[in-house]
Design a protein around this nucleic acid. Structure first.
Lengths: 200, 200
DNA sequence: CTTTTTAGCTATAGACATTAGCTTAAAGCT
DNA sequence: AGCTTTAAGCTAATGTCTATAGCTAAAAAG
């Protein structure tokens, strides 16, 4: 009988697609093997373990995601870039819930190959913050703030964390505006004085 | 031989504690039974399934969390309340990672008992936003923005999502300031003025 | 002190991940 | 072409975990 012609890349792609359909938690080697027309133990020729497979999905997801973000931000600056990036973030995550969930997983300490991919997303954000004149600690803090807000919104949305589904788009719009306000007034935010003054 | 004297409440408490120690994903009925000095199938006398147990942990977590938030906010208004709530949020989540992760899970549609507990947290935030004069859609949007940012920051932090561990406290401080800035200038944020780029 | 309830037990089935070892399709070489 | 080597995919088997069925005896009820 002819062979299935698998390799690690095809296995990871199929696994990521399956995770997008059924959720990362429901991804099993049994189901993946069935989809690939192969017996379950055969997958071990291409992947060391289920955990290793999830790491590969995470890395794949990060690469694809960084690409999407980069494309959204390119040719734009400041608010335009930030807003475009935010909307691309949300669309991608909602379209690829399994990949997104896999990407949440940080690189294990010392996993340089994985860490490098994590940095790709950050690199896009560094560029956007650079457009606002932010660098060093300010850029790190602003990036973490934006990542947290966008990541949090999307995971809550994907997990049905928002009770009323109807106005989620408007809420996201406001979230993005809040980020724009914060980033474009970052000196105010990062000032060590407590009381906040009204803006503009 | 004497009985172990279990009931659903004790099982859920032990499960939540175990989840805090080993992570929600590593919570197994086998390990839980061992910790309670009981054979694995005995747990089914108190809990319908592993999934049902996780739902109960989620509900327990939400109740405790709402309590903590409420205590932090009480007797404070505006920025003081928001800042206190934010710091309480982060501490609780980092101290109770398993409960926190369980709490991320939204109530299943139609699960009124669970939904009621989800609302308890929201109620605290509604009160805080009320202090800023926000209500209706504005309050909903501001709450979702704050939840997203705080939830996102803490889950990224717990998942080693931030590459450099050293300055996380400062970043959180900036995040909170950014939220304070946004909420105290919410009319600016919610103004439909600036054109938003449609993405994709 | 008898009857009823039920907490916890043993035994067992079924889904998965994972390992060991075999077979044979395909790739490489002469 | 034919011969050799590599490795893809297979069957068989083990261990872990969720879950069900049915038994036993400890506690509660009368």
């Amino acid at each position: 009988m002819p062979r299935a012609g698998l390799n690690t890349d095809r296995v990871v792609t199929a696994a990521a697609d399956l995770a997008d359909e059924v959720g990362l938690g429901q991804l099993t080697l049994a189901a993946l093997a069935a989809r690939l027309g192969v017996r379950q133990p055969s997958l071990y020729k291409h992947v060391a373990s289920l955990d290793a497979l999830k790491r590969l999905i995470s890395m794949r997801a990060k690469a694809e995601f960084a690409d999407v973000l980069g494309r959204a931000a390119i040719g734009r600056t400041r608010d335009d870039a930030l807003v475009a990036m935010a909307y691309a973030w949300r669309s991608w995550a909602l379209e690829h819930p399994g990949r997104f969930q896999a990407g949440e997983r940080g690189a294990a300490p010392g996993d340089v190959e994985h860490e490098e991919l994590s940095r790709r997303t950050i690199a896009v954000m560094v560029a956007v913050m650079g457009g606002y004149g932010l660098d060093g600690d300010d850029a790190v803090d602003a990036i973490r703030t934006c990542r947290s807000a966008l990541h949090g919104f999307v995971s809550l949305e994907a997990d049905y964390g928002f009770a009323f589904p109807q106005n989620i788009d408007r809420s996201f719009d406001r979230l993005v505006r809040a980020l724009v306000l914060a980033v474009s007034n970052w000196t105010e935010v990062s000032a060590p004085a407590r009381p906040q003054a009204p803006v503009r």
